[in-house]
């Protein structure tokens, strides 16, 4: 299959796939969606590479109950603890991703946090934390089923981040019937590699 044919076939609205790759997926979305209403605070420089941004945490906290349904503990303190613990693990996970992938995650959240984008996606002016579960669910479902690759990718990323953060925790294991990892003692008969050098 020739390269031009391939790109024509996969073109997304008026933006070519190749053009998107060059600009970075969500950097482009920011420009594209922000451009609809010609405003937005713009991207902040620096800060990439140290875990989740405050906007990221706010958005994930908002959508977690919608994604996880009845799996989240119902009562206030337990629910808050499950969300806090999950976000803390996820924060550390993100901090170990390569710079380009951390940049992509950060771009995603920065873009979603632009008010014109919020209006476009959730149909209201509320901050993510204040959106109704119905508005959030409707946004997630339409992104998942969208004809636009970029929105389907947004859904997949958001859903994955929530799943990663939640199912890593013992509180989740109980609800899915996973007894947890075995408790093991190191076997002294097996040789170990120890660092005896300069490390």
């Amino acid at each position: 299959m020739s390269a031009p044919g391939r790109h024509e076939r996969e073109s997304l609205l008026f933006i070519s796939r190749r053009g998107l790759l060059r600009a970075g997926l969500f950097g482009t979305t920011a420009v594209w969606m922000g451009g609809f209403v010609a405003c937005g605070p713009g991207r902040t420089a620096g800060g990439v590479g140290f875990g989740l941004s405050p906007a990221g945490k706010e958005i994930l906290r908002a959508i977690s109950p919608v994604v996880l349904g009845g799996l989240l503990p119902e009562t206030g303190p337990e629910r808050a603890r499950a969300l806090d613990t999950g976000l803390a693990s996820l924060d550390e996970y993100v901090a170990h991703l390569s710079s380009p992938l951390q940049r992509e995650v950060e771009d995603l959240f920065e873009t979603l946090d632009l008010w014109p984008v919020r209006v476009l996606l959730t149909g209201g002016f509320s901050r993510w934390a204040d959106c109704s579960p119905e508005a959030l669910e409707s946004f997630l479902r339409s992104a998942q089923g969208s004809r636009i690759f970029l929105l389907r990718r947004v859904y997949a990323l958001l859903q994955s981040l929530v799943v990663l953060s939640f199912f890593d925790q013992p509180v989740a294991w109980k609800s899915v019937g996973y007894p947890g990892p075995p408790l093991l003692k190191p076997d002294p008969r097996v040789g170990r590699v120890e660092n005896r050098g300069t490390e």
Binding site: V67, L68, G69, E137, R141, Y155, V176, G177
Partner: peptide
């Protein structure tokens, strides 16, 4: 990659 009730039912069958 589902959500809500679908995800819950899926998870509980682990």
């Amino acid at each position: 990659k589902g959500m809500g009730d679908d995800l819950e039912a899926f998870a509980r069958a682990l």
